[in-house]
Amino acid sequence: MSNDRIWILLGKQFSGEISSAESAELENLLKQDPGVAASREFAANIWQTPIRETADAECENRIWTAVQPQLPPRRHRPVIRVLLATAAAAAVSGLIWLGWPLQRSTTPVLQQHSVAAGKSKVTLPDGSIAWLNSNTQLQYDENSFGKQYREIRLTGEAFFDIAKSEGTPFIIHAGKIKIHVLGTAFNVKAYTDDSAVYTTLVRGKIAVSFQNKTVVLQPEEKLTVPVTQPATDFQQTHLDKDSSGQLPEISWLNDKLIFDNDAFSTLANKMSKWYGVTFHFESPALQQLRFSGIIDTESIDEALKMLQLSKPFHFQISGKDIYIRN
């Protein structure tokens, strides 16, 4: 019924879900239906009239009494603040305090950002941005960062967009390599279990040094420095962008895990990388189940529950192992 179609389109218009094609369709339909056209303003009025559920104060208080005891004392620092073990001990023990090098004017305050799974965006004090991939740690000394150098240590994988700041070089320590930057965007992959450290430059210019070598990278170049072999075995390669115009090395930055009619086996592969887990299937039939969807900020538990809504299966999470059962 075309009349219902008008109302559907009006709803989409008021809620901001309408496409331009639908917008044109709506105007067309309204021309043919003066009755609805006349009540369009009423409808808009209704949409703008705020309604409010009657808040049941007693009920809200009842729930709050269950929630409140779970709130521990205030904590101001949003990031995990890891004081060096010695520094922390120094604060409580005079003895160790004496042992602490006195010439050090400021106690190093180590800022540590870690991501166990998923991704996280970290803004450094100089405005530089680091996107951390899963299972990644980034550390810097809050007191000395930005004074002479901007120095950080990375384990795992991160994409950096470094703010320009002449005079204070940005230095990244990752595994056996050291990267000097002046203002640029690049990706570093240096997981401890990787056989090499990979540096991919997107724009700008960086110099990567390791042992006694220094290699200058041009945009779209990738440098592979093996962990175990002699550093002379490094590789410098030019990368090709994929069909979407992106370097495959930084595709992990795309915030979503998208799957479209994927077999569970394929999806499990994607999810293994995304969450850093291993899947175990009870039967091959389970691997043939097909799913479509998008995983965004969901936890693995939430994501699996979401999948359960469309196909029947059971799962058990035990540490980093996910067991899929009938």
Binding site: D4, R5, W7, I8, L9, L10, G11, K12, F14, S15, S39, F42, A43, N45, I46, W47
Partner: peptide
Amino acid sequence: ENQVGIALKKLTKMKAFLI
């Protein structure tokens, strides 16, 4: 989409009638 459309249609009819 349908339910929002139906709600809007019903409410608007009611309001038009009331006015």
